[in-house]
């Protein structure tokens, strides 16, 4: 069964000043795929996401999102939901949780117009999805890190995306919260047919939840189900050494069992 392609990268190269960030990346993310993008720090994961979003233009190569280059999506840009790394935000900014989630609707509402009751409903629903409805009137600065993270996810959901890109979404969330977070993503994928890409350096946790893993270190090493990736020696190639991975040592049982 071949599914339609949501994201297609062909021979994508990106460099910042003299530093190579992405090298000859080819990638094909299919409709409805739940993908974990892993790689060591500085491997170009965030850059790859920014290329898909159209925030970074590649020096060479082709990028297509839903069949067109990302910067030609125009007013349809909101079909990509994006959850940036929490560390990038300005958390002292005076806005309420509702304000932030409502911003997810702004691209759809259009210039000059005010949010409608439908927009408000979608925002409330998005907050319920991440179980933050009780915090709707709170100011952003008053929330904990994990709560702020959930607000960012709610904002991405409020855009009613077809493709959801999350950059280190579990940072600042405890192990229990993390488990529930991946369950939420799984549910969204099933209910709304979302295509989801989760960027993380936590291989162990992500591989227990996603259907496919892509390993990145400047170039894309593999794009396959987690069981194949973890046993094929790819991680050693990507990370340079196995020891470091074992030192983090939280490979869940499930992956091993699937393999045997």
């Amino acid at each position: 069964m071949t599914r339609a392609s949501v994201v297609k990268l062909e021979d994508v190269w990106v460099s910042f000043h003299e530093t190579l960030a992405l090298k000859a990346v080819n990638m094909d993310i299919e409709d409805g795929e739940f993908l974990g993008l892993i790689g060591p720090n500085g491997s170009g994961k965030t850059t790859l996401i920014r290329v898909i979003l159209g925030l970074v233009k590649p020096d060479r190569g082709r990028v297509e999102v839903f069949g067109v280059p990302p910067d030609s999506l125009g007013a349809k840009h909101h079909i990509i939901g994006y959850v940036p790394q929490r560390s990038h935000g300005d958390w002292s900014f005076p806005v309420s949780v509702t304000d932030v989630v409502m911003m997810g609707r702004y691209g759809r509402i259009g210039l000059f117009k005010r949010p409608s009751s439908l927009d408000r409903e979608v925002a409330v629903k998005a907050l319920e999805d991440v179980q933050m409805q009780d915090f709707a009137q709170r100011q952003l600065a008053e929330l904990s890190g994990g709560q702020q993270q959930r607000v960012l996810i709610a904002r991405a959901l409020a855009t009613e995306p077809k493709l959801l890109l999350l950059d280190e979404p579990a940072a600042g969330i405890d192990a229990y919260g993390e488990e529930r977070f991946y369950e939420l993503l799984k549910r969204l994928k099933e209910e709304q047919g979302l295509t989801i890409v989760v960027v993380t350096h936590d291989i162990a946790v992500v591989s227990a939840h996603v259907e496919k893993l892509a390993c990145l270190n400047q170039t894309l090493y593999t794009h396959a189900p987690p069981s194949e990736v973890i046993t094929a020696g790819t991680l050693e190639k990507v990370y340079g050494c196995e020891v470091e991975l074992l030192a983090h040592g939280r490979i869940p049982h499930r992956v091993v069992e699937e393999h045997k």
Partner: peptide, 22 residues
């Protein structure tokens, strides 16, 4: 007044505003 919500979004998070198509 006319661009209140857009200016708010851009001030808070310019990158996300760009991603939303503003």
């Amino acid at each position: 007044a006319l661009l209140f919500k857009e200016l708010l979004f851009v001030s808070f998070d310019e990158e996300m505003a760009a991603v939303s198509g503003l």
